[in-house]
């Protein structure tokens, strides 16, 4: 199915959880925050949150700033 991750289109397997998505991108779970369709997904819900076709996913971390 098609997902938009950080603004870019990605083709992923059906029934993908947020947890698995983070693993697929090899991201450190402690320094990654997730929003799906602009709604924040709490860490405790990563495994149970199943992504749907056309979901807009934001994978977020820290960046340089003042």
């Amino acid at each position: 199915m098609k997902l938009y991750i950080n603004g870019k289109e990605f083709e992923v397997a059906e029934n993908l959880s947020v947890r698995l998505l983070i693993d697929n991108f090899k991201l450190d779970i402690k320094s990654t925050a997730v929003a799906v369709n602009k709604e924040i997904v709490p860490k405790s819900g990563y495994a149970g949150f199943i992504l749907k076709e056309d979901d807009k996913v934001d994978l977020v971390s820290i960046a340089p700033g003042g």
């Binding site: 950080n6 603004g7 991108f25 991201l27 450190d28 320094s31 990654t32 925050a33 934001d58 994978l59 977020v60 971390s61 820290i62 960046a63 340089p64 700033g65 003042g66």
Partner: peptide, 16 residues
């Protein structure tokens, strides 16, 4: 201080 931004999957270096 740090900003909060979308992760850049192409970044060569990890700030953290």
């Amino acid at each position: 201080t740090v900003a909060v931004r979308r992760i850049d999957f192409n970044a060569k270096d990890n700030m953290l």
